[in-house]
Design a protein around this nucleic acid. Structure first.
Lengths: 234, 234
DNA sequence: TGCCGACTTCTTGTCGACAAGAAAAATACA
DNA sequence: TGTATTTTTCTTGTCGACAAGAAGTCGGCA
């Protein structure tokens, strides 16, 4: 691993959130793959912090379900629950629909601009065939929509679901093809238009179809090479 | 406050969850009202534990949004967000519908029995005019339904919403009248029957109406004596 | 050679103490 | 007497060290 990271002038409570966010990203981006052991001592060295703040960050990650602590034994990055995928798809689809719906109903002044920014970023990622970029900008796009919907409960659940989805997609991104992403760009544009027009019914229908697309895509990836599954489920 | 609590023979990691659950209950039951200061030292004395495990429990509660930590200053029991009530009602209604729907579709062998147990408890509370009991058994009843629906994401969000609802209801339970609770018993029975018959559409409609009832009730309480509001929102 | 039990080692869980930051209190000054 | 500034005090944030529990290791015995 690399040497200890920055953090000379850390004001009092900043270290914890740094550790939290850093680990969160590394878990979601599979830099820390499922099952990886999390060693407190090691993190303590890496961030040049005592074990206490490290521990606090880990507790937060555990509360979010991103890591699993085996009591008195070890703590590891949570495995992706393949058996629970149908539940995941169901919840994801519902959140796609609800957030897009609410965005059409509730969006205010600056919201559309914020959504468009993310959509541009997604388009750029598609143009560059930057698959990892597509995965994360797609997430940001839908979170921007959720925020326009003005319901923190949905934003929170949706964020968690999309991030869990990022982990799954990263497992399979090699098999991404070219035609689907371009189709997504078009679907995104339709959704934006429906939101602008405050057409709740249409927004719902588009979100629903969009969700089905994505769920179907993930499903086909998984069934296509299920060897990965066996390898990582342990 | 009373003297230090039990916990002579605590196996290694047990203290943390004890503290967590104890505080969680006290917050939800308003034994610790919104805005109450949480003093780590004091809790340390009370549970006969070091500040470290106390802190871990507090971090968990903070992650759940039940307490708010003012950095370097104080940590208090989170206030009830009256401005966010519309969002809350929207999410609550959706979860009522979705969980009941899924229960009708997915319930398996023992689920109905579990639901009936909670329904009996709710009936008993209504008979005894035990308002506090009604509030908590009603929660347990709907969580039992959610569990029959077999979707952990919904169960988790719904639990949080119902518990938040318990806090709000406790603020107003004095104004509970007699006719509404009995009506709820009947509505519950209809829902159970729809679930048993796997009638998804009916289950959805009943849950929707039930949610509207409850939301309407809470709303009328709040507008009826909004002095409480001003008093506790600080 | 194969299995059972004590021992070692490693990681987590807990502790008491210290440091930093902010509010409250006390003091100085106009 | 009122205000600005310093000092005090109190609470949180961080640290290093110790204790407990579990897995793996080593040795003894059939």
């Amino acid at each position: 691993m690399d040497e200890t990271e920055k953090l000379q002038t850390h004001r009092r409570g900043s270290g914890v959130s740094t550790v939290y966010e850093t680990l969160r990203n590394e878990i979601i981006e599979l830099k820390l793959p499922p099952g990886s052991p999390i060693d407190e001592q090691q993190l303590s060295d890496r961030f040049a912090l005592s074990r206490t703040p490290i521990r606090e960050a880990l507790v937060r990650l555990a509360a979010e379900g991103l890591i699993t602590t085996l009591t008195n034994r070890a703590t590891i990055v949570s495995n992706i629950d393949f058996l629970g995928l149908p539940e995941f798809f169901d919840a994801l689809t519902l959140m796609y629909r609800v957030t897009t719906r609410l965005a059409a109903a509730n969006h205010a002044e600056g919201d559309i601009a914020a959504i468009l920014v993310q959509q541009k970023a997604f388009e750029a990622a598609v143009s560059n065939r930057d698959v990892l970029g597509m995965i994360s900008t797609n997430r940001d796009f839908h979170i921007a929509i959720a925020q326009a919907g003005r319901n923190r409960y949905y934003v929170e659940l949706f964020t968690r679901l999309l991030d869990e989805g990022r982990r799954i997609l990263r497992l399979y991104y090699s098999s991404f093809n070219d035609v689907l992403p371009r189709q997504y760009v078009g679907e995104h544009e339709e959704m934006i238009q429906a939101i602008i027009n405050r057409d709740v019914t249409l927004a719902d229908r588009l979100a629903s179809a969009h969700a089905d697309q994505i769920v179907g895509q993930i499903r086909s990836y998984i069934t296509a090479d299920s060897r990965q599954n066996a390898k990582l489920a342990l």
